[in-house]
Design a binder for these strands. Structure first.
Lengths: 109, 109
DNA sequence: TTCATAATTCAATATCTCTTGAAATGTTGA
DNA sequence: TCAACATTTCAAGAGATATTGAATTATGAA
């Protein structure tokens, strides 16, 4: 993952509504969620949800697929993993104390 | 770590100059770096470096300590680890594929 | 004290971001 | 085709952010 991709992803996740959307979608797993459901979940008007979903998709954090009238959004776990990996390796230089934080809650600094 | 703290940290890291500052400081370790050195390293005028260092410090990503004429900045690895942990646990719901990305380059999706 | 150095603060500007509600688009079922 | 629904796009305004250079503050050395 290139720096600018990681920056786009970080920027996408650094907004309350968008972070909550991603959290919801990761929890939904393969099933995903429709734009409407997501909007209700994060308390956003449809245009606002759409705006943020579009930003997340553009950054690569989520994918979309039309199913009949609805559009199903899913978390892009591969890209999310790439971003975590970028942060750990490139930005944090594989610092052992930071890496430890990813091994489990009890191991974290 | 609370959501709003993680958001502040993510926002701080989602900017090219600031991400590069953090990367440089993690690599410098305990020795840290002065504001002037950092500015040169990331190709930023002193006012710009100061502006971004202040943002990073406010978000908790770096610490500062005056030493004579210089101010030494260091990465706050504990807080960086907390942010990684927040992302993994809270935002990514401990998804196994994402967690795998933190175990090492070869293990990543 | 006076000077030079390191860093921050300030002011101005340009740009980007978020939010809202209204309008437009695409899709299905009657 | 038409009506209803799901979603996106658009326009406008408020607010935040990044950049620059000049001015200011803090510190140490002569």
């Amino acid at each position: 993952m290139k720096e600018h991709q990681a920056l786009d992803m970080l920027h996408a996740l650094s907004q309350e509504t968008r972070l909550r959307i991603v959290r919801h979608l990761v929890r939904r797993g393969e099933e995903g969620a429709t734009a409407g459901e997501i909007g209700k979940e994060v308390n956003a008007a449809s245009s606002r949800a759409s705006f943020h979903l579009s930003a997340l998709e553009h950054a690569g954090a989520v994918t979309s697929q039309r199913r009949s009238r609805n559009i199903i959004y899913r978390a892009n776990v591969a890209k999310l993993g790439n971003m975590m990996s970028f942060l750990l390796d490139n930005c944090c230089d594989n610092h052992p104390d930071i890496r430890k934080c990813c091994l489990g809650a009890e191991a974290c600094c």
